[in-house]
Amino acid sequence: MNRYWANYHSHNYYCDGVESPEAQVQAAVQQGVSTFGFSSHCPLPFLNGWSMKQDRLNEYLSETGALKEKYKGTIELYVGMEVDYIPGVCGPADFADQLDYTIGSIHYLGTNWNGDPWEIDGATEGFMKGLVEVHGGGIEEVLRQYYAHFRQMVQQDPPDVVGHLDKIKIHNIQGSLYDEESDWYKAEIDQTLDAIAEAGCTVEVNTRGVYKKKLDMYPSLSILKKMRLRDIPIMINSDSHAPGEITLAFADTAEQLRQIGYETVRVLLQNEWKDVPFDKDGLSLDK
């Protein structure tokens, strides 16, 4: 049985990625990807520097849909979006009926010092300004809100895939803000994973922290071990923003997942979610 890869978290020039969707497809084929998903950032009702603009949504859906037909027989393509969950503002259900799948992520948490949405996965400078000026430096309060939003999302507006679960750790440089081994933090993780398991969502293992931030994957290995005990399904995604990033850090990540007991990953194949075996060389797909 041949080995292939899959990636369902990718960004192109419709949002903050570079190059076209077709350039992504061609690179995916070259990198041994058998099933691939487009997932540009969804339009938001306020200005930011990285989301798709509302007036480009139909063009995005049309272009990626046409590529599905053009490359049929070469690679399976699926049209998704990474949808921000912002209570009362935006969520996966707002776009799901136009897509093959949704990735639900949290990039904003409350408001910043100007009363605008507070971006919590951008530059650390902006994160720290909000943390100090709005929350008085109370990182525990912020993290409790962050994981509460994930729980609310999977319970009230569940996506197909939960995006980069603990990405907020990018600001926790050398453990300067909080200890991931503290009892309160582990309790938040446990409660959140219980909610995800009950909702039946897949959680992505996102490799962008490895190849871009020189950190580790999202979520961390300690969280993935807890997920394995709960039988929470996973997929390996790269969160690529350029065609050359589509399969970065996949082999090492797959090896680590095997070591903690995962034997299958979830893929969208022949328009169905399936769990397939994998190892460091790729996914075992019956082609």
Rank of each mutant, 00 (worst) to 15 (best):
G115N: 10
E125K: 15
G126W: 11
P92T: 04
Q31W: 01
R151K: 12
P43H: 07
D286V: 15
S220P: 01
L67P: 01
L283D: 04
V18S: 12
I196H: 03
L268S: 00
E19V: 12
A242L: 11
W50F: 15
K214H: 13
K70T: 08
V134G: 00
A199R: 10
K70L: 11
D275S: 13
G17H: 08
G73W: 08
E69Q: 13
S20Y: 08
V25N: 03
N48F: 05
D286Q: 14
H11D: 07
L47C: 07
P233M: 04
W50G: 10
K72M: 10
N12E: 06
T102S: 10
K225L: 09
S176H: 11
V276M: 12
K53S: 12
E198S: 13
K280Q: 15
I234S: 00
R208L: 08
W113R: 13
E272G: 07
L44D: 00
G65N: 05
L77N: 01
A28T: 03
P117K: 06
M81Y: 06
Y71F: 14
G163T: 03
H241V: 08
S182K: 07
I86L: 10
D190W: 08
E76Q: 14
R208M: 10
E198H: 13
D286I: 15
V205K: 00
Q30H: 10
D179H: 09
Q26D: 06
W50M: 07
N172V: 06
W273V: 02
G163E: 02
L177Y: 04
V79S: 04
L131Q: 03
V18T: 13
N2T: 15
Q152F: 05
Q54C: 10
S182N: 04
H241R: 10
M52S: 05
G136R: 06
E272S: 12
P158M: 07
D281E: 15
L268Y: 01
V134P: 01
Q156K: 14
G130V: 09
S220W: 00
K70F: 06
G261F: 11
V83L: 09
D94H: 12
I120D: 01
N12F: 08
Q30T: 08
G80D: 01
D179T: 04
Q54K: 14
Y4S: 13
T64E: 03
V161R: 00
G65S: 05
Q259H: 14
V142W: 00
V161W: 00
G91P: 07
